[in-house]
Design a protein around this nucleic acid. Structure first.
Length: 111
DNA sequence: AAGGTGACCGGCC
DNA sequence: TGGCCGGCCACCT
């Protein structure tokens, strides 16, 4: 196990956990907050490992189009959509309705 | 050590 | 919105 405290991953998870209920964000937005806006892909990669990490609301993270691109990586094909709808987010055809409305810009909220 | 990969993004048509 | 292309950067083999 090459796990010490993968700083990068931890940061992604930290932001992902800060996503409010009923809100979603994009990989690029998280990447931007982390300071690696150019590596939005890395955010997705971190999400891939989120299964290994444990509690990370990856279902609240979608691409900038509001498409559930990563739903395929979930346990169930429609699990991601179910979770989102469970939070009041409407999802049609793997696409979030009113994406801009439910979009939440991640911020290192020192709240 | 080098190459391939990827849950992306932005620009262009 | 959608398709195509290039870039970008960390992780894996």
């Amino acid at each position: 196990m090459t796990n010490q405290n993968d700083n990068f991953f931890e940061k992604v998870y930290a932001v992902a956990r800060q996503i409010p209920y009923g809100r979603v964000t994009s990989y690029g937005a998280i990447a931007k907050v982390l300071g690696t806006a150019r590596s939005a892909r890395m955010v997705g990669w971190a999400m891939n490992a989120c299964h290994n990490r444990g509690d990370v609301p990856a279902h609240r993270v979608v691409n900038r189009k509001g498409l559930l691109t990563g739903k395929h990586h979930f346990d169930g094909t429609n699990l991601m959509q179910q979770l989102l709808e469970s939070e009041g987010i409407k999802v049609v055809d793997n696409q979030i309705v009113d994406f801009e409305n439910v979009f939440w810009e991640p911020e290192m909220s020192i709240q």
